[in-house]
Structures are given as C-alpha cells and as structure tokens.
Design a protein around this nucleic acid. Structure first.
Lengths: 264, 264
DNA sequence: ATTCAAGTTCACTCATTTAATCACAAAAAT
DNA sequence: ATTTTTGTGATTAAATGAGTGAACTTGAAT
C-alpha cells in the first residue's frame, strides 16, 4: 500500500525527531484531516482513544497541533510548512546551544604526542563528507581524489574542488571512462584519470567484498579511504595524518608505482 | 562552577538531539581533550569504564568520534565544526524526509464545517511566531498588531511587516511610548500607537497574572492573542477565524470602543 | 430529576530501553 | 611468571513508554 508506507515513514521520521510513537501517529493522523476528535483519531491511527489526549497535549506544547477546548475537544495539525519550520527552528536552536556550550569549554592543550603511525576510523557518509571537505580546505599543494561512484560526487564536493587555490594540483581519478569524462566536465581545472587500481572496484555485485568509496590524499601527507559495507550500505573510513604515517606511506607508494595513470 | 554548568548544558542538549546519556558525556569529555582512552574518559566523566566502548562505538557510527584501533584504543572527537555540521545535516535530512512523506499523503478534503465560533489554542514561541507570519501573509486589507515586549519584535517579524502589500493598512501598537518610537523607526510605513488597553500589561512583576504577549488582528476577521505564563515563561496563544467568530467579535468591539487610539 | 452514553482523566500493568555492576578473558607491563 | 590494564559479554536494576481499564465528568435523552 502506497500511502500506508508513507505514513509509516512519516511516523518513523517523527520519532527520530524526538516524538513518541503516540505523538507521531496522532500528528500524522491529524495531518490527513482538517480537524478531528479523539475518537476519530483513535480510529484512524492505532493509538488508544484514552491516550490521544496526552499525546495531543504534548504536540500542542511543541507547537505542532492546535486544540479547540470544546466538548468534544477538536484537534488539528498546524500546516505542513509551519510544522517543518517549527521543527527545523527547534533543532537549529539546539545545535546553536550546543555550539556555544562547547565553545565555552576550553580544551586541554596537552599536545597530542601523536600523529605518526596513527590510523583513525570513522563512519557515516555525511561525517565522512564533512571531513573530506575539511581536508580539502587544508590542501597546500596537491589533492588526489579517487571516487568509485558518481553519487559521491556531490554538488558540495564539486564546489569545494572548484574553489581550491590555484596553486593546488587537482588530480581526480574515476573508476571508469564514463565517470571520468563527467568529472572532467564539472571540474575543468582538474587533471582526471581512470584509476588503474583494480582493487578499487573489487566487490561489485558478484563478489560480496566491500567496495572502495573514496580515496583522498592531501599534500602526500594526509589520507582518507572509505569503503561501503555491502550488507548495510554504510560508509566507513580510515584516516591517517603525517608524512611518515604508515597508511600515508603506502598510499604514496601505490601512486609512485604508476598505479595511478594520468590520461591527460 | 562555570565550565561544569556548560558541560551539563552540552550533555543536556546532546541528549535532546537524540544521544544517550553515556554517549553525550563521552562526546563532551572527548571534546575537552585532543584524544583519550577509555580509562581517561571514564575518569573525566561519570561513565563506567566498561561502557565507554559501547558509547564511543555508537558515536563513531554517527560520525561524531574517530577511533584508533590500537591497544589501548584511543578516541577523539571530530572538530566542533564538523560535529555541528554533521548533526545539522542529519536533522535537515530528517525534516526533508518528513516533508516528502507527508506531501505524498493527500488530505481528506471533507470540508471542515467549522471556522465559526471556534477558538483554538496552541503553544510555543516559535510555533506562534510561525503562525503570526502565516497570518500576515494572508492579510488583504488590514493588520493590527500589538506587542507587549520589544523582544517579540524579531527581525523576521519586522521584515514580514515591511514586506506586506501596500494596500494593507498596518497598525502597530506598543505598550509604552519608548517601544512605540522604536517600532516607528524600524517599520516606517506602519501607523503606530500606544495601546490604551490597560489589561494588556497587567501582570508585571508584582501581580502574578499572565501578561499578554502579542495580539494580531487580520482583516478584522482573524485574531491571535498570546500570553506568557509567568511561572514557566512559556507562551500560549488562542486563535480564532471568521468574521462572526466570538473572539474576533470581541476584538473588533474593543477596537471600536476606542480602546486602541492611533496617535499619528 | 434520573439515567445513560459519550468524553475525559487517572492510575496501573507490562514490555522495552537504558543505566549501572560484575565476571572474565586477553593483552600489556612489571 | 605475576600483576595490572584493557576489552567483551552477561546480568541486574531503574526508568521510560506502550497498552489497558476503572472511575469520574458532562451533556443530552428519557
């Protein structure tokens, strides 16, 4: 059922946004009718009638629902645009509060006696994309980027690449010729090539091995390699810094062995 | 203690953003130090050492923390800007998903045999501000606005007011002369006045009565009145639509009795 | 006035989730 | 070799939320 799934999806997202199940269901229910009573709502959702009142009251206090104090009470959802706006404002406000709370806690500046030989792991596509961005901003002389999948070439990434300093060499590799030409189109100043690294696209369909997502090498001294785990589709990454870092050394070695072949 | 409170605040906000207590504490702990082990973390926060691992693993999967798989493992938080960016992206993505899920559910268009004599209540400053905005957009001929407190005159509200169609009369009332002149400054095209309604600012300090926050009357047929509950500081509002609506009638009556006196 | 039904609130149980503790194996350090 | 750290897993306890039913209002109908 089409709408049924969408309803479930909406309830789901609302719960992720912090609403309880009853609250989410009531809100979605109300968003389908101009207004409704507790009875009507409990019929169209599977919220027990006696609990509709609680749920709706919470929703009202959060600015998502209006209540008419008549008998029977009537409820109605605020407009979609008002609701999403309210939710977004709420979250933005929270992130802002977090930011200022953390800002006011100064960090212990024991130097991190580290960097060399450390390999860090992280996960999550957005986080990895953010890190990629941060790294690109730090580039002084060279950026080597290999992307396995066209979908990873987001607008934001393209913008960032095009915005890098002119003194920075931009080498962008793709796994296939078609992706390469596309990359060359959107990032004219880059030197593009088709990666000669076979292991980059092991794990396509047939094999169940994890495939490489992106590879970022900055100034030959910082590297990030991500992979997509086939079962969940999640993106994981490893990250190393420092010219002498083992991971970085390996990456340089691979390059100098001519595995990366520039085509133009 | 200054930072102690800020730490609590940060943990609190992170929980509101969906993290569990241990996760929130670990993240805040890590954000105070370049990198740390489970032991160190459990000492600086009050997360049991044996549970640091779980918490940090979740944080990693959410892109907020990096893990170095050595022995002992070392953890570090991503930079503040990356963290807030990741969180914000995550939330925006959710709100977007909600929007499209709800969009695809069309609403039952049984006419709402309503409007007249209905009074709805809602709560939450942002929601009320959003509704105010929506109402201002709908104005055809006249807007009467009375604000009790200068703080309610947000940038957004001012922009909205200045952006209303020229054919719409703009009457803005303030509770004091000083607020009035300020209003006149930022909204030149408005006709401003000092509200003669004493009950608007009953409940200042001494009395514990709830004070009126804002009063919005659109085209003499839609009204919204909000009040601030003194104990919690929350803003609540009542809202009525339709020329014949009781609340609207009362509002018109008050106006025509000369309670609102234009000064210029 | 009394009764009845619908509307509403409240209190309580059960299930799930999360916090907190413990026992133990593996790894490092002494 | 022995003793401390480090990491995993299981287990208990506390808190939260879902689900249910009794009881109390209210307004309409007898």
């Amino acid at each position: 059922m089409e709408t049924g799934d969408n309803i479930k999806e909406a309830v789901d997202v609302l719960q992720q946004l912090g609403l309880k199940e009853y609250e989410a269901q009531c809100f979605v229910g109300l968003s389908q009718v101009p207004s409704g009573t507790a009875k009507k709502l409990s019929e169209m959702t599977d919220v027990p009638r006696t609990r509709v009142y609680d749920a709706v009251r919470v929703l009202e206090s959060e600015g998502l629902v209006e209540i008419q104090h008549s008998s029977p009470q009537r409820f109605r959802a605020v407009s979609m645009s008002e609701a999403t706006e309210t939710l977004r404002n709420q979250y933005d406000a929270r992130v802002d509060r977090l930011q200022s709370a953390l800002d006011s806690i100064q960090m212990d500046t024991d130097d991190d006696e580290s960097s060399i030989q450390e390999v860090w792991s992280m996960a999550g596509s957005t986080a990895i994309e953010n890190r990629t961005n941060t790294l690109l901003s730090q580039a002084q002389s060279e950026v080597v980027l290999v992307i396995a999948d066209e979908s990873l070439l987001t607008e934001r990434l393209v913008a960032k690449l095009n915005g890098t300093d002119d003194g920075v060499d931009l080498l962008v590799g793709a796994v296939s010729e078609s992706v390469r030409t596309h990359v060359q189109d959107v990032i004219p100043r880059a030197t593009t090539f088709v990666s000669g690294l076979e292991w980059l696209h092991e794990g396509d369909a047939d094999t169940d091995e994890t495939a490489i997502g992106r590879l970022v090498l900055i100034d030959r001294s910082t590297i990030l390699v991500s992979s997509i785990v086939p079962s969940t589709g999640e993106e994981h990454a490893v990250f190393g810094e420092g010219f002498g870092n083992g991971l970085v050394v390996i990456a340089r070695r691979l390059m100098s062995q001519g595995q990366f072949t520039a085509d133009n």
